[in-house]
Amino acid sequence: MEEVLNDGNRRNFLLKLTTVVGGAGVAATCVPFVASMNPSTDVLAKAVTEVDLSGIPPGGMHTVAWQGQPVFVLHRTPEEIAASTATNGVIDPEPDAKRVIKPEWLVVVGVCTHMGCVPNKEGPGWICHCHGSQYDDSGRVIRGPAPKNLAVPPYHFSSENKLVIGKA
């Protein structure tokens, strides 16, 4: 294309400029098309989930939906807290204090880090029935094949009994 359009040996500035400007326009036109496939505002509005904690007794657990995934909210007893702080986990060591804001509330995404199944609460901790991974009461993996601890979502306490998941 260049060769045909270029007038002899003279460098054709006008052609180059027009090509660049036109190309930029084509690229910019693609933006709305690509952007339209991103989550729409009503989907993004679901990015935050509010949880009322007053109904969860010590030792109890609620599973809530956040961005379409299960989140485990575990009200830990003093014994469970003691057991969790005593170790740092085995496969993906991490102190319990780094995984909670208030020690009595553990908030983790209930999706096994191995293949994405939802683990079951069984005894202390969770067991994933897809491939047998096991997690403790801090959501840390203590038996493979899962490689990582259960993820901690961003969250904060908006009041004494209100938990907001999705925003730190």
């Binding site: 709305p32 098309f33 339209s36 505002t41």
Partner: peptide, 12 residues
């Protein structure tokens, strides 16, 4: 939904 929520849906 397209006109209000989808990114640039109104433009498309």
């Amino acid at each position: 939904h397209i006109m209000r929520d989808v990114n640039y849906g109104w433009l498309l």
